[in-house]
Design a protein around this nucleic acid. Sequence first.
DNA 1: TTCTAGATTGGACACGTGTCCAGTCAGGTG
DNA 2: CACCTGACTGGACACGTGTCCAATCTAGAA
Lengths: 185, 185
Amino acid sequence: MPRRGLNARQAETVARLLAAADLELREVGPEALTVRTVALRAGVSAATAYTYLASKNHLFAELFLRHLQSDRPPQPAGADRVARVQAVTRHLAASLAASPELAAGVTSALLGSDPEVARLRLRIGAEYVDRFAEALGDDPDPAVVETLALAFSGALLQAGMGLMTYTEMGARLDVVVATILRGTP
Amino acid sequence: MPRRGLNARQAETVARLLAAADLELREVGPEALTVRTVALRAGVSAATAYTYLASKNHLFAELFLRHLQSDRPPQPAGADRVARVQAVTRHLAASLAASPELAAGVTSALLGSDPEVARLRLRIGAEYVDRFAEALGDDPDPAVVETLALAFSGALLQAGMGLMTYTEMGARLDVVVATILRGTP
DNA sequence: TTCTAGATTGGACACGTGTCCAGTCAGGTG
DNA sequence: CACCTGACTGGACACGTGTCCAATCTAGAA
C-alpha cells in the first residue's frame, strides 16, 4: 500500500514494482499478468511484493490512478459547455485507448473488495466527477454531474466487456454528452 | 452450457445445479460460493458441473439472465414517457435489490472472457435496451436509448462497487432518467 | 434380458492467489 | 568497527479454478 510513511528504500521498491507491472501489463495483458512475475521482473521476491500490494486488484487500481493523475488535460476553456465536457470525455477515452490493457485490467479490479481497492475506487471516481464539474462551470447541476458520471462509468464497463473499443468510446460519448446536456441550463 | 440439445436427464442436472447455485449464492454470497460446493449441493460431482458450466462467471451470468427473464414487468402504459422509462429502471432496481448477491456476483462475472459469458452478456444487454426502447415508444432516438443504457450500466457498476445500494439505485435513476429525457422530443 | 451409448464419477493435475514465518542482509547508529 | 533495526527472502501452506481421463453407472434399444 503505497501510502504515507514509506522511507526512501521502500518507495524505491514500490516504484520498481509499479514500473515492472506497467511493462508486464503491456506485454502479456491483465489476465496473464501474475503478481509473482511482476515481482520477478522488479527484482524482488513475491513476499515483498505482497507487503506493498494487497492484491492483484490493488496493483491495477494503483497503476490506473497514477496513470490518470499523470495525464490531467489542460482544462478546456472553450465557450461551449457541451464542447468542454466532450473535451473531457475525449481526453479520457484517448487516454484509455492508449493503454487498453490497463483499462481492461482496472475495470474488473475496481470491483474487488480489498480495503485498498475501495480507497482507490473513491479517489478515481472523485477524479472523474471533478473533471466533469469543472468543465460544466460554476455551480453545476448535481443531477447532470451524476448523470455524466454514470454514463461514463457505463461506457467504461461496456468497453471493458468488449462491447465497444476504447477508441470508439470517444465518438460514442460525444453523442451521449450532447444528449444529456440538451435542454439543461 | 445450457444450450440447445440437452436431453431430459441433462436438463434436469443443469436445473439442479442452477437451483443449488441460487441457494448457495443467497447463503454465502458470490465470493464464498465455489463451483464445487454448488455441485455438492446439487448432488453432482464437480466434473459434471464443469461439463455444463464453463466457469464460475458463466454460472453467474446464466443465473442472472434467468432471473431477468423470469421477472419481466408488465409494459408500463402511462402517458408520460419519462414515467414509463422510470418504471423500467425502478423495476430493474427493485429486482436487483431483491437479490443483491446475484447482482454483485454478475457484475464482475460479466467482465469475464469466456465465450459463454460473452454470449450471455449480449443477451443481457439486449434485454435492457429492449425494455428502454419499448418504454420510449415508437421510433425512439437511438442516442437516447444508448445514453439510457450507458447510464444504467454505470449505475450497475457503481452499485457493484458499493458506491450505492441497489435500493438507492431506483431513486437515483429517476433523476438521471429525467435529466436524460429532458429536452428530447 | 443383454447390450451399449453416453452421462457421471473420483481423483489427479497445473496453476494462481494470498498468507506466514524463520532466517538473511544492508546501512545507519553508537 | 561492531551492532541492531527493519527490509527483504525463500519456501512452505491452504485454497479455488479449470482440465483431464479411465472407470463406472444407467436407461433405452435390440
